[in-house]
Every structure is written in structure tokens, then in C-alpha cells.
Design a protein around this nucleic acid. Structure first.
Lengths: 341, 341
DNA sequence: CTGTTAGCGCATTCAA
DNA sequence: TTGAATGCGCTAACAG
């Protein structure tokens, strides 16, 4: 039978309350007493029963998710996954709130983070816009003792406890190798469609992509990046235009959202052209395009995994517990038409 | 505040014990009383607090994992992941035991399953050898009310509750498309190295691979399957021999284990040949080979995820709870040298 | 500074 | 067929 607080109390010759005090590092225990209890804990190999503790405390974890108010399938999916987590709240003792802030707007994000500092939730998850002010606001939360997890796009250099998202440099590199290998030594131009160079994840994907292309596929020439602001209309316009003007394009890498527009442009302008296309994020649109051959491969991050992982990590940090690193690693999913979920 | 058993008891005008009886469908309750309680449960929207229930019961979940005693990196990895889960046993209220049985030996597996029927653990996970007797033994366990999960290799047609492993037909198809695209229209022969056609996962991979190859890459001709019994020595011999005898081989698909031997053969016999190679399972050996260019892509199943998933599912089934399907889906990981974990 | 006591939500004797 | 009482492991008043 595993030891309980009673066993420790007996072994240390103190009462339950005192054991509880040292266990939860509360003040009001003489140094020697504390030592005695700590020794007993170590000797008996005590591990606290978190479930019982939570029951006694009636603990719930108020968590806040801050998302950009972007109208694209990926963000809708992320939102849906959080709502699914909300539906499980009772069993998981969470109390989750979703807050939307204008996209690509650091100041709005900062304001929200400052309000949260007052609310003192058990944890905060945010899709970070990469700006110094945001970093400062996040650091402030962390210093106040509130666990913070970045979601989808990281905030390197900040004190955030954890990043729940894919390695975007690796994603870009993978896209490059896939595209290069699929094109098998052909010579030509590659168009690149991004959302915005203001968000870190897109910048990193581009960086990884360009690096591998330059190093391993010199026969392929990268055109300058098209910024579609993750908006299907803008993306459509940009791609249609590029295809019309440039006959040498043989490959496209779409590293942001708004792929609806890309796909429409391809179906209108490129039915008769041999084009190899790699895109990010599995949505209803990209899935259909992969199946009908318009897209050759999709790189994806599992939004459900990201949300569940963020919640697990925030709860663990709130309790000072450790996590299973391998379980929290968000992998880069590669989908061909054969291994779709 | 969410309703508790007390609230139900009050609402139904009965005692806690009676509420508990209907909650756990125990006998000794008049029909009318039962109805009253059930109405109260529904009206108040009661959901049982599983953590509290487990505390009161002092519940632990004795689980048994049955693995083939195969000496390859993948099985070693699987074993290690189970041991990692054992290390977490205290917190997760599990009591996990690993049993090894001779590989590819249905009768040994059946004997073990029959012994388990007597022990009545909370759940059983097994790497299934595909045979009618095994199916019958599994069905027997299920009918006895013991949750059963197949791991890595499934047992279709049996009553097992869940399969924690990848879709191997999809894996084979994906391997074919990757190989075909990487070879970009070249014409030549493809060597296939399997472990044994007696295990379902290998048969399914081959099936998927052959289907896509026949349909989409007619210029590539599949040689007859080499069975390496997941043994590095045998694999080495078979591949070295094939390469020596056949100059037309331009691609290799290794769908089983024992890749150490394959890699050694490639380094000895094929340094001067342009060979595209796809293999299964990420191990220290295949990882190194991917990085140095000997292998072009690795298809993988995350053993850690499989083990954690099997445990979650077995616990849930033992309690009659539902699982999050997306969380329990084991995906096919595709690794290029750029996205290694 | 330390101890006593009463729960958290549920399961389980033992009586009635 | 039903109910009262006790305890699971832990926390948190409230006394001392």
C-alpha cells in the first residue's frame, strides 16, 4: 500500500495539518519540524494523490485561450477544438474561456494580456503575435506566477513555459525537400504564398524552405514571396496573377492559410499545366484538393492535439507537476492522398 | 455547483446507499424506487465524479501487455515505453505487467490469453498474431467482460474493443506513392523486404503498396517479396544477394523490422548505385541512415503514443467511459531528414 | 508554531 | 428492500 499523509504524520511524530503545511510549502512550521517531515516523506517514498487533493480542494482550473479573430478554416478548427475541450470541462475540472482579439494586432493582444494579469486564471494559452510588447506582457504574466503556453506560433525569447505547436523551420525544410524530390531534377520557378511576414510561424517556414531549396535544389528558383494575409480572396488574386504572368512556374508552396483562394486559382488557370503544389493545414478545402490531385501534399498541425496538449501542460504547470515531453511534442503531419485521417 | 449523490438522494427522497445502488446497477431496489432515482439523475443532469469514485474504491487497474519476444529495435522501443508507463503507475492507478511470448507462435499466445481469463485483469493489450485460435481466445476474454486492445498488429474479425496501431494498408499505399514520386517516372525494378507474411500488418502494407504501384506507377516492376523474419542477418543476406543479382533495382521498400541488415547491405553493395529506399520504423539505425542519405524516407508508428493510448482506452472501457477518438488515432508518421524528432 | 476536526464526492459495510 | 454510518487521501478552517 502506498504511504499516505497519515503514515508521514505518524513517522514524523506530527499531525496531519503539519504534514500538509510542509507538503504545500505553507509558512508556520519550525525548521526542525519541517526537516523531520521532509525526511519521513523521503524515507517512505511518499507521492501525493493528486486526485484526492483536487477533490478536497474542490479545485477547478480557470484557463483562458486567446485567439486571433481570423476567418479561415484553420482558426475555425482550432476554435472548435477548444469548444470540444469546454464540453469535457466537468470531467477535467477545467473552466475554459475563449477570447478573440484582432489578428496581427500586437496592441490588442497586449491589452488582453494585461486584463488577464488582474483576473489571475490558472493558465493562459495564446496564439502569439511576435512583437516586443507582447513578449513583455507575457513575461509579466509569468512573473506573476501564471502559467503561459504559446499556441501555433511561438514567442521565442519570452518566458512562456511551453510552446504547443510544430517546429516551423522543420516544416519549411520538409516542404522544400518534398517539392524538390517530387519535381525530380526539373528546372523552373517556384511561387511562394504566405499569410504575413509579421507572424513568426510564417517567417520560419519560409526560412526553412529557402535554406533547403538553396542548398539542395539549385535548379529551382524561388520567386519573391506573395503575402495573402491568410485571406482567400487576396490569395486567389495573387496566384492567378502570378500564373498568368509567369510561364516558368512549376511548383507552389503555400505556407499560410486562405488556401481556398489558391485552389480556386489553380482550377481556373492551371488545369493544363504540370504544377506540383504543397500546402499547409488540412481543411475541407485542402483535403478535397489533395484527393483530386490539385495539391500534391499537405503539411499539417493537429489542432486538437495542440489544444489538448496546452490544457495538459497548463494544468501540470499550475500544480508544479512534470509532463511527458514526447506526448506534448506536436508533430508535423505529412498527408498524401493515401494517409488522410 | 454540479449536483452530487446527495442532491439526487434529496431530490428522490431516498438515501445515499439507494442512489449508489441504481448508479452502479446493483440489485435490491424496487422498480418504482429505481425509477424515482433515475428521474432525479436525469433532471439534475448528474455526472459521476470518476476521481472521487476511484478514491472511494481504492481502485487500481491491473493491465497486462503481451508482446512477442522479438529481438529488434522496434520491440525494444515498445517495451521501453511500457516500462515508462509502469514508472507512472502510481499516479495513474495502474498496475501493469509485461508478458513475452515467442514470436509468430499462435499457440503460445493462446495459452497466455487463456491464463489471463482466469486472472481477470482490468484489461489486456496484445500484439496479435493473426490466427483463428487467437481470435477465439480474444473473443473469449471479451465475452468474460475483459477489455482487450490490439497493439501494432490488429485482429480483424475478432471482438477486440480497439486497435492501437496505424492503418497499415494506408502505410503501404503511402510508401508506394512516395517511392513512385521520388523516382519521378523512371523505369526499373523494386525490391520488397518484409518480415513475414504471417503477420497481418506486413501483409496489409504489402497489399497497399502493390495496389498503388500497379495503378499509378506501371513503369516500376515489383520483384517478389523477400521474407527477412525481422532478423538483421537474414535481411542482410537477402538484400545483398538481390542487389548482386539484379542490376535493374532502383528502389527498395522495407516494410518490416530488422533494418540494420538492410542498411549494412546498402552500404556494402550500393554506394555507387542510385537507389531510392523507404523503410518502416524510426530507430537509431534507420535515423542514422536517413541522415546520411542511405534511406530516403521513414514511415513510423509512435510506440509511446500506442502504449499511452492503449492504457487510456483500457481504463475507459473498464469504467464504461468513452474516449476521444481523434486522440486515440495512431497516425502514420512520415520522416524525411528535415523533420526528425 | 502545532493539532483537532470536519468535509470533498463516492462506495461500502452493517443494521433495520 | 432501504438507510445510517464510516472511510478513501487530502485540505482547510479553527483552536490551542
Amino acid at each position: 500500500m502506498r504511504p499516505t499523509v497519515h503514515d508521514i504524520a505518524a513517522a514524523a511524530g506530527v499531525s496531519l495539518a503539519t504534514v500538509d503545511r510542509v507538503l504545500n510549502q505553507r509558512p508556520g512550521v519550525r525548521h526542525v519540524t519541517r526537516e523531520k517531515v521532509e525526511t519521513a516523506i523521503r524515507d517512505l517514498g511518499y507521492v501525493r494523490d493528486v486526485a484526492a487533493a483536487n477533490l478536497a480542494k474542490g479545485r477547478v482550473y480557470p484557463l483562458t485561450f486567446i485567439l486571433p479573430a481570423s476567418d479561415n478554416s484553420f482558426m475555425h478548427g482550432l476554435n472548435a477544438e477548444i469548444r470540444a475541450a469546454i464540453a469535457r470541462s466537468v470531467a477535467e475540472r477545467t473552466d475554459i474561456r475563449i477570447v478573440e482579439v484582432p489578428a496581427f494586432d500586437p496592441q490588442a493582444l497586449v491589452r488582453e494580456l494585461e486584463m488577464l494579469a488582474a483576473e489571475k486564471p490558472s493558465g493562459v494559452a495564446l496564439v502569439a503575435t511576435d512583437a516586443p510588447d507582447v513578449r513583455a506582457a507575457v513575461d509579466r504574466l509569468v512573473k506573476d506566477g501564471i502559467p503561459v503556453v504559446t499556441l501555433v506560433s511561438d514567442l521565442t525569447g519570452s518566458l512562456r513555459h511551453h510552446y504547443a505547436g510544430v517546429d516551423n523551420i522543420a516544416a519549411g525544410r520538409t516542404a522544400a525537400r518534398l517539392l524538390g524530390r517530387f519535381l525530380g531534377g526539373a528546372k523552373g520557378e517556384i511561387a511562394i504564398l504566405a499569410g504575413s511576414m509579421l507572424v513568426r510561424d510564417h517567417r520560419e517556414r519560409l526560412e526553412g524552405f529557402a535554406a533547403v531549396m538553396a542548398q539542395e535544389f539549385p535548379a529551382l528558383h524561388l520567386l519573391s514571396v506573395l503575402e495573402g494575409r491568410d485571406d482567400p480572396e487576396v490569395a486567389h488574386m495573387l496566384i492567378a496573377d502570378a500564373l498568368a504572368k509567369n510561364d516558368g512556374i512549376i511548383g507552389i508552396y503555400s505556407l499560410g492559410a486562405g488556401n481556398r483562394g489558391l485552389i480556386r486559382a489553380l482550377k481556373e488557370k492551371a488545369v493544363d499545366r504540370a504544377l506540383t503544389v504543397i500546402a499547409h493545414e488540412l481543411t475541407a478545402h485542402t483535403r478535397a484538393a489533395l484527393l483530386d490531385g490539385t495539391i500534391d501534399a499537405i503539411l499539417n498541425q493537429d489542432a486538437g492535439h495542440e489544444v489538448r496538449s496546452a490544457i495538459r501542460v497548463l494544468k501540470a504547470k499550475a500544480d508544479g507537476l512534470s509532463v511527458i515531453d514526447a506526448q506534448e511534442r506536436i508533430r508535423l503531419d505529412i498527408f498524401l492522398k493515401d494517409n488522410l485521417p
